[in-house]
Design a protein around this nucleic acid. Structure first.
Length: 541
RNA sequence: GCGCCCGUAGCUCAGUGGACAGAGCAACGGCCUUCUAAGCCGUCGGCCGGAGGUUCGAAUCCUCCCGGGCGUACCA
């Protein structure tokens, strides 16, 4: 990578000054007259060197190898602007072509076992667009970490026990009795969505008129029935979006194996709990949490937090080195309690990290729809996916910074579907594919003489390709997949501009082969980018 | 009240210490005998919510204020 090698040269030049190390940056220059890359090393190190930035810059430059750069200048307050030799850029492209590995990130993960848990919606209803954002975020994040060499497990946690599932059972039973001609109302806190009518109809087809009252037997039956049907619904919704999980984890299993009791015992043994008002509390506040929370209610039932702690102990036992939980911004308190619990248990501090995201609101007809699964007010993920297609939904969901609210304007998504970023990027890939279909003779790109590539836009394209691995690493480590979405868009922009005023086919052989080699590298990067984003790479449009 | 997140062009958003703040959409004007015009080029448009502070340098870090979202359950 160019920035890496430049950084190495500058670090070496700095070391020759005999001063303590300094942290500095090397960035692509903002303007052509600033060269290819700029560094702030002289300004950053001015204090250490007790010298003015510009003087210091001159001394650093004096220590650089004579022939490393085409031109090195001091500019503005003390920037060092580096003009690369063309051969350096060409050899960078050569490396990319020779070793596809140059297009992927450094394998800093080295097989570290990482679990990414996401969506984990209760099996009480179909997924909404809100879950959709999390699904795409978690999936792309997982792919990014895979690129970094991590051994990633995508996991979905089903809360298939407890109060919410009981409410689902009762709501489903009520729908069922309604179909049997009875005037039964859905419980206040229950699930009002129409999807339960459909399931109730299936139930009625199977068992005719039964369960006149909602007793234990009815609860058991409708719970099992409802949960299993809805689990499949959820899996279908995710499959349609192209999200695949390695593991579906059931809360019921935790209870069955006694892990919840064991977790409570472990916390208590370490002095992490206390009794008050008939309940058992987690000593969260003393351990960095926002506030103490109930683990066991006064009626003896465990809270969600208690079970979740048991679940995370289970993750640890399964040997994951790191766990990332993708969650909505509304779980803030609980997140701090979970971290407090893990601290009490003595887990490594970096075992669990939360990738937090804000919500999606759907804007239609200038109106914002406020969603609530329980009230039955929501836009279903599957409706969105069916209408707009997997590629569009995925791109829109991941193109925004996770911590900002995502306004999904349905009208805009529909109306703009023709010049939307998705097609813009895919079209770039298509254009390249088309050239390769028509090209008659293509030399092995890694053997081609690249020196005919001389135009600024060609050299810029190469520099953009070169930064791909850095983007992957930053997008993963910062939980910021939108950086990749944006990168792909920028690369497409650069390519389309290039395409508009550079011919490939029909040019003199050396130039044509060099350009074909460049395009094959660009195509590879589009392919990798879109694949990580979970989008298709059409050959024709 | 307290905690977390957000406030950048008419709209949707990039930009987490660097040189005159960027893109898409919208508006306006150019470009198709040539590898797919689902494209390219140009114009218009911003005291980066406000006020202080730290720094050689702040949209970016700190403090306070204003505005919006979320949370503050023996719900999940």
């Amino acid at each position: 990578m160019l920035t890496t090698s430049i950084k190495t040269l500058l670090t070496e030049a700095w070391r020759k000054l005999g001063l303590e190390p300094v942290s500095f940056s090397v960035d692509p220059s903002e303007r052509p007259e600033y060269g290819d890359f700029s560094s702030n090393i002289a300004m950053a190190g001015a204090k250490i060197a007790r010298s003015s930035p510009r003087d210091l810059a001159a001394r650093i430059i004096g220590n650089l190898p004579q022939d490393a750069f085409a031109k090195v200048e001091i500019a503005g307050p003390g920037f060092i602007n580096l003009h690369l030799k063309r051969e350096m850029i060409h050899s960078c492209l050569k490396e990319i072509l020779q070793d596809e590995g140059k297009l992927t990130a450094e394998k800093i993960g080295r097989g570290t076992k990482l679990q990414v848990e996401f969506v984990s919606s209760n099996p009480t209803g179909p997924l909404t667009v809100g879950h959709g954002r999390q699904a795409v975020l978690g999936d792309v994040l997982s792919s990014l970490y895979e690129q970094l060499g991590y051994d990633v497990t995508r996991e979905y946690y089903f809360n298939d026990e407890g109060r919410q599932v009981d409410l689902l059972a009762q709501s489903l039973w009520a729908r069922y009795r309604q179909l049997c001609g009875e005037d039964v109302t859905i419980p206040e806190q229950g699930y009002q969505g129409d999807y339960l009518i459909e399931i109730a109809q299936q139930v009625k087809d199977d068992i005719a008129d039964a369960y006149p009252v909602f007793d234990e037997a009815a609860k058991g039956f409708f719970r099992v029935r409802g949960v299993s049907v809805i689990k499949e619904m959820i899996k279908d919704d995710l499959a349609q979006l192209g999200v695949k999980f390695d593991n579906w984890f059931s809360e019921a299993d935790l209870h069955r194996r006694g892990e919840v009791d064991a977790a409570l015992k472990a916390l208590t043994e370490r002095g992490g709990t206390y009794k008050q008002d008939g309940a058992i509390w987690l000593r969260a506040e003393d351990n960095g949490g926002i506030k103490d929370s109930v683990l066991i209610r006064s009626d003896g039932r465990p809270t969600y937090l208690m079970v979740d702690i048991a679940y995370h102990m289970d993750k640890y036992r399964r040997g994951f080195n790191h766990v990332i939980d993708v969650q909505g911004a509304d779980h803030h308190v609980e997140q701090s309690c979970m971290q407090a619990a893990l601290k009490i248990l003595g887990y490594p501090q970096d075992f669990l990290r939360y990738a937090v995201h804000q919500f999606v609101s759907i804007v239609e007809g200038g109106e914002t729809l406020r969603m609530s699964t329980r009230a039955g007010r929501f836009v279903l993920l599957r409706d969105l996916t069916s209408e707009l297609g997997r590629d569009v939904v995925r791109y829109f969901m991941v193109a925004r910074k996770p911590e900002t609210h995502l306004q999904f304007d349905l009208d805009l998504a529909r109306a703009e579907s023709l010049d939307n970023p998705v097609y813009y990027i895919q079209y770039a890939h298509t254009r390249i594919a088309s050239i390769f279909r028509k090209a008659e003779e293509i030399d092995d790109p890694s053997e081609v003489d690249l020196s005919p590539l001389q135009s600024p836009s060609e050299l810029d394209l190469i520099k953009q390709l070169d930064s791909f691995p850095e983007i992957l690493e930053e997008a993963a480590l910062r939980f910021a997949p939108h950086l990749l979405a944006e990168y792909a868009l920028n690369l497409a922009r650069a390519f389309h501009a290039y395409y508009a005023d550079h011919r490939v086919l029909g040019e003199e052989t050396d130039l044509m082969q060099a350009r074909l080699a460049l395009l094959s590298a660009v195509q590879m990067v589009f392919k990798n980018s879109l694949e990580i984003l979970g989008m298709s790479t059409p050959e024709m449009m």
